[in-house]
Design a protein around this nucleic acid. Sequence first.
DNA 1: TGTCGGGTAAACATCG
DNA 2: TCGATGTTTACCCGAC
Length: 416
Amino acid sequence: MGPIIGMTPEKRAETPGAEKVAGLSQIYKMGSLPEAVDAARPKATLVNSESADDELTNLNWLHESTNLLTNFSFGSEGLPIVSPLYDIEGDDVPSLGPSCYPNPEKKSATSKPPYSFSLLIYMAIEHSPNKCLPVKEIYSWILNRFPYFATAPTGWKNSVRHNLSLNKCFQKVERSHGKVNGKGSLWCVDPEYKPNLMQALKKQPFPSRSTFYTPPASPQSGSLSPHYLSSVLKQNQVRTLKGEKPLPLKTAVQKKRSYSNAFNHSSAMRLHESDSLATSIDPKEDHNYSASSMTAQRCASRSSVSSLSSVDEVYEFIPKSSHVGSDGSEGFHSEEDTDVDYEDDPLGDSGYASQACADTSEKGQPDKKMRKQSCQEIDEELKEAAGSLLHLAGIRTCLGSLISTAKTQNQKQRKK
DNA sequence: TGTCGGGTAAACATCG
DNA sequence: TCGATGTTTACCCGAC
């Protein structure tokens, strides 16, 4: 892969510990890091991870959805945004999968991932809710995602530590004193080097689904296919124009919750995409908000157990056997699958409100009134959410046009 | 051919 | 004392 700018081994010249921590303190204005990261996030995006998924009024999913929608249209620096997701999503989206890997399906799950240790660490850290992980959890993340390392010689852990120590991209943060988190420090990605890492990540070929093992999150997690979401969005735009009530998107979201863990969890490119988008809008923008917090929100929103700090805990929550689909694909769910699941269990965990309303009314439950009332309340919230989505979509559109206008002007100025 | 990034191994120190 | 963690050094390899 290409060189990562600024990754020269100069850390030894730095005084370990104090300066780095101080540096991060400046970045995060922190006491202990998780709190500080939270504090660094804009209030509007602050999420109680425990309730994020349950709260119907929570609009993180809108952030995510609009991000996804936008990411389909453009990437940063004119680079096409491509993703292993595309390989999964179907024919209607560009796919680089097969061309990146000859016979990707034959690529063993135990084959070496095409990412450098720096990138693996980066992905692991970025994938964590707090954007910082202890070494042990970095190991776990890598192990979970790349089974190759389960059978690989133990030296890889040394390499991970070596990278953490050597790479300027990674900063060590002392754990907060109040917590008993075991020994060792937390490792974070230096925001200054994020673009470099992103650049390096972009240059990576996409691993096959088997190489990049993607454990699904909790059943409650998941995001939407851009196509599905955009279709609902379009419908709602039409409905709004007609003066009709928008479709309860949140309901649709919940219905589709388990739609695609791959979509939700292909962290490499999801990081990629979100960061690309963020930097494409304004490279000077606070990384914590534009990239990290968005990813963090996804981590928070994608899983009801995301309040657990450990990815281990999250992944252990779901048995690995469930990752393998009937078609042999690992950790990926087709839309059809989840639809079937949904039909099998329309209420399920998804809390599909309208369906619940219909069911309860049909069955003539004694507390009809109560249920009807709660259904109405839920619908109100759903309307609100739908409205917000439309609003955000509008903002995105405006931003998109502004960016393109700016680019055009920039090009014109350059020509002059 | 030299440089650089990446991978690996190893030694050593520190800490819980 | 032991194991995990962190740092440093050295060497090799491949890409450019």
